[in-house]
Design a protein around this nucleic acid. Structure first.
Length: 601
RNA sequence: GCCGAGAUAGCUCAGUCGGUAGAGCAACUGAUUCGUAAUCAGUAGGUCGCAGGUUCGAUUCCUGUUCUCGGCACCA
């Protein structure tokens, strides 16, 4: 009986291992709940699921839980594990469950029972007297949950709704063996080392300042990297039939009213009165118009499309724009380069006919995949479908979702479907990439939009000589340069491939005797278009190499008396170690080949 | 925006149970001219995030505030 219980639900998991980990983690969440109840008598419990690497429990206790409390909770948990009680499942009636949790003062549980489906089986799990509402599965005994650690405490809204009370969420991790736990904790430490915020400072790529929260300062090396990516994308998109444009940053409020941003996005926009402030005039008296800083490029592109009569022969028209965008994100949302207030997208809008949607999207999917593969970046494609709150007919939505799905299948991409997660104006396909700490971030996006062409009353003349509304596809491959560079820094741990690297070669002298040759080599490399720097400090060569390694420079060219003699360089590669003596010409040839943008034609 | 934690030299961090601070690296000066992961010696560097309060005295305690971090919520 007990064994059967623990088998239950196994088919819902991809593998035996996944099933066991899930049961282990969820069971440890129960154990933690019991422990929290001991440390904080009267604690009320909401939900406590297993997560990707561990578990959490949302609880309501009278005061803030501190790191010291975590230690106490861990102590209690150890006691429960040692007790090695079995997890016992019991099926109860709705009334029994309500009575049980009601008597215990667990009103979140009572509330949850009332939300359960009429027909649903209500089960409770009991381990050594601690009972929780739960559908399982669990590990056989508390003794199985030995290798855990509580990690962090945070606030979390009841049922994830900010209208609800905020509870405290305690996160932990648990593994089948001590080795697996230690390995996980080690991985966390390692991940911190490749955090782009840390590497950005260390490598001198960018900085932030209190005076401009959420806006990066790109330092010379970071600017170089940014510019390389920006140019690479411009070139790629030109090859793909896009036309680049440059558009204003500040617009009359009327534009935002037309686009719908004023109604739907105003709180995220920076806006201000145009007028110069006159002595004695109050803000209210100022009758100057209101201007808004653009949070997106689409309205500009609608104006461009609408500025002339368009023929079906011009479609698909693909407009690319790397304009600077500002969004007034709430303070708590900001973080490093992954969530900023000022950024730039590799943005484009494709104006096309309904018939062209599928092939355009299929091309885009292939393009995204091609670009990401060049970086060796893993991604997860997501199809987001019609939300509750949407504009346009259901038939139109169904058709659009079908074409996106058909394109995904045509491209042979694996994807998951997020039902109801589409934008109010159309369904979309997003590409999520993981950061060093395992958090996923949306980068590439392909969004169909049937609404905005209507709002701007856009028309083209079809082959039938009649007017038609074009479809607009909003799309970005990197997403924002800021976020994408953040992801790349972590992906490469700062050791960029040559084509992205702001410093290709560092020339370094062994001693002052070889200064003249060092200068000559540096000049020759520079003349050949190589990004080169020269280190002629009177440090020992070992020290200079050590610094070069720390700075993750792809190549070091060592110049000593031998090289002075031969006229060549001794090359050390970051990725392949010592390459030995090379002529300057051979080095340049090698660098040129490696500096090619991998996704250019 | 919400819950919690934090802010000390350019960077990483220590410290002061209230008596205005210290290390390593970096910088600068001098010596050294050296062959693939740290040459030696010296010098300089800080309104201890900002503003108030308590106190004889605050970087330390209290309040507010800005920013950062971990989550939550948000994320056309």
């Amino acid at each position: 009986m007990a064994v059967e219980d623990h088998e239950r639900g196994r088919e819902a998991f991809a593998s035996e291992e996944e099933y066991r980990l899930h049961a282990l983690r969820h069971s440890t969440a129960h154990i933690m709940a019991e422990a929290i109840g001991v440390v904080f008598p009267g604690a009320r419990f909401a939900i406590g699921p297993a997560t990707k690497d561990g578990f959490f429990y949302d609880v309501d206790v009278p005061r803030s839980i501190t790191p010291e409390d975590l230690a106490r909770i861990e102590e209690e948990m150890k006691r429960v594990v040692k007790r090695n009680s079995p997890f016992e499942k019991k099926v109860v009636t709705r009334d029994e469950a309500v009575a049980l949790f009601g008597a215990a003062g667990q009103d979140f549980k009572v509330e949850r029972i009332s939300l359960l489906d009429e027909a649903a089986e209500i089960s409770i799990y009991d381990h050594g007297g601690f009972v929780d509402l739960c559908r399982g599965p669990h590990t056989p005994r508390t003794g199985n949950c030995k290798h855990f650690k509580l990690l962090k405490i945070s606030g979390a809204y009841l049922y994830g709704d900010s209208a609800n009370k905020q509870l405290q969420r305690v996160y932990g991790t648990v593994w089948p063996t001590k080795e697996a736990l230690d390995q996980y904790l080690f991985r966390l430490e390692e991940a911190k080392k490749r955090d782009h915020r840390r590497l950005g400072t260390q490598l001198g790529l960018f900085m932030f300042h209190d005076y401009a929260p959420g806006a990066a300062f790109w330092l010379p090396k970071g600017e170089d990297l940014y510019h390389t990516l920006s140019e690479a994308m411009r070139t790629l998109l030109k090859d793909e039939g896009y036309v680049p444009v440059r558009t204003p940053m500040v617009f009359d409020k009327a534009l935002w009213e037309t686009s719908g941003h004023w109604a739907h996005y105003q709180e995220n926009m920076y806006h201000f009165a145009e007028g110069h402030h006159h002595e004695g005039a109050s803000d209210e008296e100022d009758d100057s118009r209101i201007l808004g800083l653009k949070p997106m490029n689409c309205p500009s592109h609608m104006l461009i499309f609408g500025s002339q009569r368009r023929s079906y022969r011009e479609l698909p028209l693909r407009i690319h724009d790397q304009g600077v965008l500002h969004r007034n994100e709430v303070r708590g949302a900001l973080g490093g380069l992954t969530r900023v207030r000022q950024f730039c997208q590799d943005d484009a809008h494709i104006f096309c006919t309904h018939e062209q949607i599928q092939s355009e999207v299929a091309d885009l999917l292939n393009l995204v995949r091609r670009v990401y593969e060049c970086f060796g970046l893993g991604f997860q494609a997501k199809l987001s479908t019609r939300p509750q709150d949407h504009l346009g007919s259901v038939a139109l939505w169904d058709q659009a979702e079908e074409s996106l799905e058909a394109a995904l299948k045509q491209a042979g991409l694996e994807y998951k479907v997020n039902v109801g997660d589409g934008a109010f104006y159309g369904p979309k396909i997003d590409f999520d990439v993981l950061d060093a700490l395992g958090r996923d971030w949306q980068c590439a996006t392909i969004q169909l939009d049937f609404q905005i062409p209507q709002r701007f009353e856009l028309r083209y003349i079809g082959a039938d000589n009649a007017e038609h509304a074009p479809v607009v596809i909003h799309r970005a491959i990197f997403g924002s340069f800021e976020r994408f560079i953040g992801i790349l820094i972590e992906h490469y741990a700062g050791a960029f491939p040559l084509w992205l690297s702001p410093e290709h070669v560092r020339v370094m002298t062994v001693s002052e005797k070889s200064l003249s040759h060092g200068l000559a080599v540096t000049a020759a490399l520079k003349a050949a278009g190589v990004k080169v720097t020269f280190n002629n400090n009177d440090d020992k060569i070992g020290k200079k190499i050590r610094e070069g390694i720390g700075d993750k420079v792809p190549y070091m060219a060592i110049i000593g008396e031998q090289e002075l003699e031969s006229g060549g360089v001794a090359v050390r590669s970051r990725d392949h170690g010592e390459l030995g003596a090379l002529s300057v010409e051979d080095l340049i040839t090698r660098l040129r080949a490696e500096a090619r943008v991998p996704f250019s034609a």
